[in-house]
Simulated scan of single mutants.
Amino acid sequence: MLTIRHEVPKGLLDLEAHELYKKLEGPTLFHLEGRRTPPLFVSVLLHGNEPVGWEAVRSLLGQYQDRELPRALSLFVGNVAAARYRLRRLDSQPDHNRIWTPGPTPEHAMAAQVYEEMAKSGLFASIDIHNNTGLNPHYACVNKLASPFLHLAALFSRTVIYFVRPQGVQSLAFAELGPAVTLECGQPDCPQGVAHAREYLTACLHLAEFPSHSIAKREIELFHTVAVVRIPSELRVGFHGEDLDLRLVDDLDQLNFQELPANTLLGWQPSDPNVLLTVTDEQDVEVSERYFYLEDSELRTRRPVMPSMLTRDIRVIRQDCLCYLMERMQLPNTS
């Protein structure tokens, strides 16, 4: 399933994400030489409807077609098949950002092969680049709170999120090999997201090393993902209609990165007296009653929370989740 190449095929950089199937048979790992080693690892298009990473990379590589990269680059181009149709994933596929732990599918085996390749060669840092479908600021995510991870994140944004769930994500796996971040670059097809990601990659390629000192508290705002909110697949969910099990408020995605007070309205459950959301914490324990309650069919927050990744795209909600819940976190002493 995985193709490994040591050059960029002629004409590849002329293609947009949904056109890559014309040149690539599927997931492809490029090892490109540069002045410094070990390589910077970059993964793009783990979700086929999130083209920002590929657009940033092809713009950057276009500038280096006739000159040496400042650092070797290992580029993983992920779900080419889903990108063809501008979908997060095909119905027949697992989520390509949930396959980085052992599993039964060919995609899991492919991800293991990528990991083994990079474990063998070593890496300077790992960067996984995403769009999101709701209204969110640009931010970086880390899975460890060591200084190199935080410096790598702060180079992209003051807003940094620490998480350890869901398992199977690329950055969580590659955090065992070196500093790793996930970048969230706003909504698809936003030129500011592409420009921000390209500038960040250029800066990382020019880095010789990470600062040895701990990051200053004033340099970042740190948040901790404490729970994942999902909607059971059998429920009828939407924003309009009388026959829904759960009707969500129209401006749902405008609640992202807002510190919502207790009793904030999220939607209506017209015919069920129980909270229909499934909420799991970092230990995978069901904790929906800790965060939500019903009052006369109104679904409300029980305590102050800050959501991220809320979207109006029902397909994405079903394929991933409704949102993540975060809390502010004190910056620990790191080394």
Results as ranks from 00 to 15, higher is better:
residue 134 G to P: 04
residue 108 H to D: 08
residue 38 P to C: 12
residue 157 S to V: 00
residue 121 S to G: 05
residue 44 V to E: 00
residue 61 L to K: 11
residue 41 F to G: 13
residue 127 I to H: 04
residue 54 W to R: 08
residue 74 S to K: 03
residue 145 L to I: 11
residue 49 N to P: 04
residue 111 A to I: 05
residue 70 P to D: 04
residue 44 V to R: 09
residue 88 R to Y: 09
residue 73 L to T: 07
residue 63 Q to L: 14
residue 159 T to I: 07
residue 98 R to T: 10
residue 97 N to A: 07
residue 51 P to N: 09
residue 63 Q to D: 15
residue 114 V to K: 12
residue 135 L to Y: 06
residue 67 R to K: 15
residue 30 F to E: 02
residue 33 E to M: 04
residue 78 G to F: 12
residue 91 D to G: 12
residue 94 P to T: 05
residue 132 N to Y: 06
residue 143 N to F: 05
residue 58 R to T: 07
residue 56 A to H: 13
residue 61 L to C: 04
residue 90 L to I: 12
residue 80 V to Q: 04
residue 72 A to E: 03
residue 43 S to A: 13
residue 71 R to D: 04
residue 35 R to W: 04
residue 152 L to F: 09
residue 100 W to D: 03
residue 133 T to G: 08
residue 63 Q to V: 07
residue 125 A to G: 06
residue 47 H to D: 04
residue 83 A to E: 00
residue 151 H to V: 03
residue 143 N to M: 02
residue 56 A to G: 14
residue 115 Y to E: 01
residue 116 E to A: 15
residue 50 E to A: 05
residue 93 Q to N: 10
residue 159 T to F: 11
residue 50 E to K: 00
residue 73 L to P: 03
residue 57 V to H: 10
residue 87 L to I: 00
residue 99 I to S: 05
residue 32 L to Y: 13
residue 111 A to E: 01
residue 107 E to Q: 14
residue 106 P to N: 12
residue 123 L to N: 06
residue 79 N to L: 01
residue 33 E to T: 14
residue 88 R to C: 05
residue 60 L to H: 14
residue 118 M to C: 12
residue 60 L to P: 12
residue 147 S to Q: 02
residue 169 V to W: 02
residue 134 G to K: 00
residue 94 P to S: 11
residue 72 A to I: 06
residue 69 L to I: 09
residue 110 M to T: 14
residue 141 C to E: 00
residue 39 P to L: 01
residue 107 E to W: 12
residue 124 F to P: 05
residue 129 I to M: 10
residue 69 L to P: 03
residue 150 L to A: 07
residue 165 R to H: 09
residue 124 F to G: 09
residue 141 C to D: 00
residue 78 G to Q: 03
residue 130 H to S: 05
residue 54 W to V: 08
residue 154 A to D: 07
residue 110 M to N: 10
residue 48 G to V: 11
residue 135 L to P: 01
residue 126 S to T: 08
residue 46 L to R: 13
residue 35 R to H: 14
residue 154 A to S: 15
residue 101 T to G: 06
residue 126 S to D: 11
residue 171 S to C: 09
residue 118 M to A: 03
residue 72 A to G: 15
residue 60 L to G: 06
residue 145 L to H: 14
residue 162 Y to A: 02
residue 37 T to K: 10
residue 51 P to Q: 03
residue 96 H to Q: 08
residue 159 T to D: 02
residue 64 Y to P: 12
residue 31 H to Y: 10
residue 121 S to T: 13
residue 152 L to D: 05
residue 36 R to E: 10
residue 146 A to H: 13
residue 163 F to C: 04
residue 56 A to L: 05
